[in-house]
């Protein structure tokens, strides 16, 4: 029973193990690494990425891809900064940001499902569009001086003496918990898996394919917008060039966290650890001091490559085993 449990969660266990090994390696090598706040900082620095990666995970599980998320984050920061500068109510700004993000995702999902535009291309259009609007708002960086935002940004939730997290971390962890439950215990969540596994079969089994596919992109838009709000707490500014390539980080996190890019397999918990692994690699490189921060990118790409190839090998192996079984019959 335990073995079968292990088997079923094999890839996520590998991811968590990898995280632990990296953490231990860091702790063994560098003084001051083994400090609870180092770990908490990982969460604080990457809260927005965790949230974005959640949305991406849903899209990837459904068999699609969303490369607009980086621009959405930048757009939301810019948009919020602009409205706050004009004296808008911060709550209204947040709600409006979330609505715009969700609606944008819905439109992309609609194009993908109803007009059969490739997900990559449809969301590429979204990426350009959001970036473009950023620059229409302003080509300069706008800082956020709204007291509510500053308060949220600077508020520290003390867990223990010298140990704190930000409100963003709470939001991120809450999102992880809620979406994990949605994926596991709701019809919508299970339908996402079914469609990612085999869209044709899902249709024949009578599942609402169109509804689910479009919702997934809307959800990703929502998560990206929420990530953008959290990111605006983090930087307290909006700038059109922010977060270029964030979508690739989110995809890499999901893949390292065990999400299959062919769809049908993945968890948000895994994606969270995928984000944390990237974060810890970065931390180690900072602690090391001499290495260029670009090693982070290279290391992440190497991990990505390793995971993708491994997935592929496991897949083909499974197929050949089945073939032999069939031949034996």
């Amino acid at each position: 029973m335990i073995i079968s449990m292990l088997k079923k969660n094999f890839s996520i266990i590998v991811t968590i193990l990898l995280f632990v090994v990296l953490f231990i390696a860091g702790a063994a090598t560098y003084k001051g690494f083994l400090n609870a706040q180092v770990f908490l900082n990982l969460l604080i620095d990457n809260a927005y990425l965790i949230i974005v990666a959640i949305g991406m995970t849903f899209v990837l599980i459904s068999g699609g891809i969303d490369i607009s998320v980086g621009s959405v984050v930048a757009f939301v920061c810019m948009f919020s900064a602009h409205l706050l500068q004009k004296g808008w109510n911060p709550v209204a700004v947040m709600l409006l940001s979330l609505t715009v993000g969700t609606f944008g995702g819905f439109i992309m999902g609609y194009m993908i499902h109803c007009y059969e535009v490739q997900p990559f291309i449809a969301t590429l259009a979204g990426q350009f569009l959001y970036r473009g609007i950023c620059y229409v708002i302003s080509t300069e960086s706008i800082s956020i001086t709204n007291p509510t935002y500053s308060f949220i940004a600077n508020y520290q939730i003390r867990l223990a003496p010298k140990m704190y997290i930000s409100i963003s971390v709470v939001i991120a962890l809450l999102m992880v918990a809620v979406t994990a439950i949605v994926l596991k215990y709701t019809k919508f969540g299970r339908n996402v898996y079914a469609i990612g596994g085999n869209e044709h079969s899902a249709g024949l089994m009578g599942l609402p394919v169109a509804h689910v596919k479009i919702s997934v992109y809307a959800l990703s838009g929502f998560c990206a917008a929420l990530g953008g709000i959290v990111f605006s707490f983090y930087t307290l500014s909006g700038y059109g060039l922010q977060n270029i390539g964030l979508e690739m980080d989110a995809i890499a996190s999901a893949v390292i966290g065990g999400t299959l890019l062919t769809g049908g397999v993945g968890t948000v918990i895994g994606s969270m650890f995928g984000v944390l692994i990237q974060g810890i690699i970065q931390t180690i490189i900072i602690f090391q001091g001499n290495l260029s921060s670009w090693w982070t990118k290279v290391a992440v790409a190497a991990l990505l490559c390793l995971f993708v190839v491994l997935q592929r090998v496991i897949e083909t192996k499974g197929q050949s085993v089945k073939q032999q079984k069939k031949a034996a019959v």
């Binding site: 194009m111 007009y115 059969e116 259009a125 979204g126 350009f128 569009l129 970036r131 473009g132 620059y135």
Partner: peptide
């Protein structure tokens, strides 16, 4: 920088017209 806005519109138009 707003050029990307124009590009987005171009992509969307092309994609929609390629879609049967």
């Amino acid at each position: 920088q707003t050029i990307s806005l124009v590009k987005a519109i171009v992509i969307i138009t092309i994609c929609l017209f390629q879609s049967n």
